[in-house]
Design a protein around this nucleic acid. Structure first.
Lengths: 353, 353
DNA sequence: CTGAAAGCGCTTACAG
DNA sequence: CTGAAAGCGCTTACAG
């Protein structure tokens, strides 16, 4: 069975009583449907008097424009699909908010899809969304996504903007954070405050963002002539619990780091928990930095020095890039790197003891 | 000019090359379009062999079902509109996530709209969404919304579920949190820990949720025979800054409270800031409770005792209620009160000193 | 300036 | 079991 047809008709609902259509208006005013259509679309061809009568009737009957019908006839679309992992991640919620704001301003409506970080669900969600004929896609791919699979469901759709996660083999537009520069800034910050033994903590080495952050970290250390032994690069799933559980790995060796550049804020918060439960005061005895500037970062104990990417602004930027793509479908794929800023909160990155 | 026609065609985009249609498939297989349609919709009428040939061709040509066209012809819809204040509020982000999850499971797609807490933007957003003919609306009204105005744009649309904010004069389904019970639980908690002078801090008295929370607070005090002088009911916009600025109002009088039930977590966090800057240790010298259990509540200093509404579950519930409404458009409007649970985090609600 | 006709991609009785 | 025809609500050349 063809995937695209699975569930066809499922969830479709008979809408209420017959709505008012252009035909109703045309009959009432005594003009053709074409004339009503011209009025609706603001054509200058229509006689001012005719226009006024039509508009009055539109109001009187509380006519509601059926944009989906118009889109079908004109072979256009006025929606875009936004597919992310999960809105309960504040970073993506902010991002979505920015996308929706920018797109709404341009007359587009946002179709929402959540993958829950599952490539299978992602395929299903994209399939459903495709059936609604969006103009384009803004997609933050689920971990483990495969470009070929995506191409299979997205088909010839050129209007796709990938966000945040690199996808080998994909030739769509791509918007990414400056991960390397961010980690570089965090590492330099720790170095400037006197740290000489700095670990990189958390993330999956296989992911592109982790790879880039690690390389920014290594670059800063190399420039300062500081060591970056492999046992100081510690992997952890990006959640608080596992990060806390991995804390011990930092101190397995004799030569202990005095600070850690963390993959992201969640991992940093987990590490802070882990440190505390070992009697090590984060910020006091051991410096920590994060990445993302989630809202908890500001109220954590101690407040977390981190990198802010302004996710809402990234959302606006993603929308703008997609619109640009729509204007020139033939242009070669663009790769855009968004800046990232160090947000210093003194206490989490204290001087070494 | 009719509002509903403003911007018609704006943002519409020519879609790429001609897509594969049922006609293409029918011609290739040598059957009628009707037969292809029956296959697509899984009709048992079709000969198994015919079905197989059609399905093979659908795959071969990578056919994508055009659900919008089908919806037009069938006079159905497979989308619902979700309109909230702003996704950057984690409570609503979680809520939206739950809605989308539940709706996606039923074959619906979510159309997103944000009001930014502005009734004017809300009207514009709803107007646009209406043009996309959603099956129903889940709407958390902007502050200052007016039922008559909403009815004007939503028209005869019966399939509307209001969430979280009471709207006088509205006769749509309504899902609300048990605000009264929540504040009652928080107040009792403080009383049980020995507090006798308890204030209610934050929120706009005019809003229904603030009113309900205050009345739960008063009920608990009344049951315990404790005073609730009017100067201990302090208004504040629900943001951190204003809450911090209002802190002094708690201590204007001679008779100082030793604890405050706060309108929500944001206000509570602001109050905690305000207390700290006055040298009063929140949790230590002055007990505080919140409402919402936003993610900062757990990591605040001290961790905040609050009420959790499980917003994601509320989202699922809202979706379920709307689906129920679709099944029976004639049923009288339902009012559903969702439970709320006290989440005790010891340190923020210490015993009085 | 306005209308008659055709058509977007699909589905649904109705024949056979 | 399958096909011819009509139609969802709109728009677009094309005449006049």
């Amino acid at each position: 069975m063809n995937d695209t047809t699975t569930g066809a008709g499922k969830g479709a609902r008979r809408t209420g009583k017959r709505p008012v259509t252009v035909t109703d208006i045309a009959q009432a005013v005594g003009v053709s449907r074409a004339t009503v259509s011209l009025v609706l679309r603001g054509s200058p061809l229509v006689n001012v008097d005719t226009r006024a009568r039509v508009e009055a009737e539109l109001r009187r009957q509380r006519y509601v424009y059926n944009r989906t019908a118009a889109n079908l006839r004109r072979r256009t679309s006025s929606s875009i699909a936004l597919v992310i992992n999960d809105l309960s991640n504040p970073f993506f919620a902010e991002f979505a908010s920015g996308v929706d704001e920018a797109l709404g301003g341009k007359g587009y409506v946002t179709l929402l899809g959540s993958t829950g970080e599952s490539p299978e669900r992602q395929q299903a969600v994209l399939t459903t969304l495709m059936e609604h004929t969006p103009t384009g896609f803004i997609l933050s791919p689920a971990e483990g996504s495969d470009a070929a699979q995506l191409r299979q469901v997205l088909g010839t759709h050129a209007n796709v903007l990938l966000f945040n996660r690199e996808l080998p083999g994909a030739d769509w537009d791509f918007l990414t954070l400056d991960n390397q520069q961010g980690a570089y800034l965090a590492t330099r910050h720790l170095i400037e405050r006197g740290h000489r033994q700095i670990a990189f903590f958390g993330g999956h080495a296989a992911s592109s963002s982790c790879h880039q952050r690690r390389s920014g970290y290594q670059q800063a250390l190399a420039e300062a002539g500081l060591p970056a032994p492999p046992q100081w690069m510690i992997e952890s799933a990006p959640n608080r619990l596992e990060a806390a559980a991995r804390t011990g790995d930092l101190f397995a060796d004799g030569d202990r780091p005095s600070a850690a550049v963390c993959y992201n804020d969640t991992v940093a918060l987990g590490l802070m928990l882990g440190l505390t439960s070992r009697g090590i005061r984060p910020g006091g005895d051991f410096a920590v930095t994060g990445f993302d500037d989630i809202s908890e970062a500001a109220v954590a104990v101690p407040p977390l020095t981190t990198l802010t990417a302004d996710p809402r602004e990234r959302g606006r930027q993603a929308a703008a890039l997609l619109l640009q793509r729509l204007d020139d479908p033939e242009a070669p794929p663009m790769r855009t790197v968004a800046p990232v800023q160090l947000r210093i909160r003194e206490s989490s990155a204290a001087r070494p003891t």
